[in-house]
């Protein structure tokens, strides 16, 4: 049930964002970019949540997940279907912490690009006196 709701939310956000990006009003385009980037952030987080996985995989020093040595936390066992965070039977209780770090980075980058593009939009409004992107046609071709 949760997974269905999550997928629906992500797809709805993508839809709204795409709709707004295709508008003529510059501000709507920028807001659309914000919504799409949040849809992507949710998508990234969703890729690290397994069924009922709530534990953080913090292990004690030199403790390793069954059968793995060499000081690594998780090694891949392709034969058993273990590839990185896509864990199978014995490891289901873990949640993947890496995706949350990725999302933090993506949010910060989104902030920077949004700030830049908002400044640019304001300057364009000063130069052209409009925020309609169809009016920006001084460059031909």
């Amino acid at each position: 049930m949760n997974n269905v709701m999550l997928s629906l939310t992500i797809s709805l956000l993508f839809g709204i964002g795409t709709f707004l990006i295709l508008r003529r009003e510059m501000m709507k385009v920028i807001i659309g970019f914000g919504i799409v980037s949040h849809a992507i952030n949710l998508y990234i987080v969703a890729s690290g949540a397994f069924s009922n996985g709530t534990l953080v995989p913090i292990l004690e020093h030199h403790q390793a997940v069954v059968g793995l040595g060499q000081g690594l936390i998780v090694a891949d066992d392709v034969a058993a279907g273990v590839i990185g965070p896509i864990t199978s039977e014995p490891y289901l209780e873990f949640a993947d912490p890496l995706v949350q770090a990725l999302v933090l980075t993506a949010i910060v980058i989104g902030l920077a690009t949004t700030a830049f593009i908002l400044t640019l939009a304001y300057r364009i409004y000063e130069e052209y006196g409009t925020t309609d992107v169809q009016e920006l046609r001084r460059l031909w071709g």
Binding site: I44, I86, T113
Partner: peptide, 20 residues
């Protein structure tokens, strides 16, 4: 920015299916 968003989707899907 559109390209970057597409790239983020691709990277996330790659991570979700490969795990690295």
């Amino acid at each position: 920015m559109l390209g970057s968003n597409v790239m983020l989707i691709a990277v996330a899907s790659l991570y979700a299916s490969i795990g690295s």
